[in-house]
Design a protein around this nucleic acid. Structure first.
Length: 196
DNA sequence: CCCTGATTCGC
DNA sequence: GCGAATCAGG
């Protein structure tokens, strides 16, 4: 009997959300920190998904919703078997899925580094910044006009469309991708959202 | 590619 | 209740 008690005590903090942790979670979440940041703050054993899951269970998803009733697109009840408990020897892997295991460390690394930056009690008018995109030089013989674009050319616009200096990158782009590797990253990724 | 939160469902 | 896997959007 003694053993069971010891076991309970020892295992009490394995993966349980204590009141303390929940409080931290609430505070940070309400403070505007992202799930990954909160996860990194809580500890190595907590993942981003864990945080999000807990947040939802606590009925906390509304962080900044003053008087806005946004129903959030509800994809309805999607019944797609994402994971089967019984392997049942299915030899075919499907081909479409690229088997890739994501490492937790990658997320953790960047999460820990960026802490405490939720201070945004100021409203700054977003101003259109000049497209500082010309970090790459395209030789004239490589420049393409609109009509010269095809499935394999980078469609990143360069210059002012109203000027004759306007042209498209035109470098080779991978199949299915609208931009070349260089511009592909600039399309999205982390657009500096910190200024001033 | 990176990131974000949202959702589902086996455990 | 928990959270990994997955989805969907930027």
């Amino acid at each position: 009997m003694r053993d069971s008690v010891l076991a309970m005590v020892a295992e009490a903090q394995t993966s349980g959300w204590t009141d303390e942790r929940v409080e931290i979670l609430k505070k940070l979440w309400m403070d505007g920190l992202s799930a990954s940041q909160i996860a990194g703050e809580l500890g190595q054993g907590v993942t981003r998904n864990a945080v999000i899951g807990k947040v939802h269970r606590l009925k906390l998803s509304a962080r900044a919703k003053p008087t806005n009733s946004t129903p959030r697109s509800r994809p309805a009840a999607r019944t797609a078997p994402r994971r089967v408990a019984s392997p049942s020897s299915s030899g075919s892997m499907g081909g479409g899925m690229a088997g890739k295991q994501r490492t937790v460390s990658s997320m953790r690394t960047q999460s820990v580094g960026a802490t405490a930056l939720a201070a945004d009690a100021e409203y700054e008018t977003e101003r259109y910044v000049a497209p500082a995109v010309q970090e790459i030089f395209i030789p004239e013989d490589k420049r393409l006009s609109l009509l010269q674009l095809n499935e394999e050319t980078c469609k990143w616009p360069i210059g002012d469309p109203l000027t004759k200096d306007f042209y498209f990158c035109g470098q080779h782009s991978d199949e299915g991708k609208p931009y070349c590797e260089f511009h592909s990253r600039r399309a999205y990724h982390q657009i500096d959202k910190k200024r001033r």
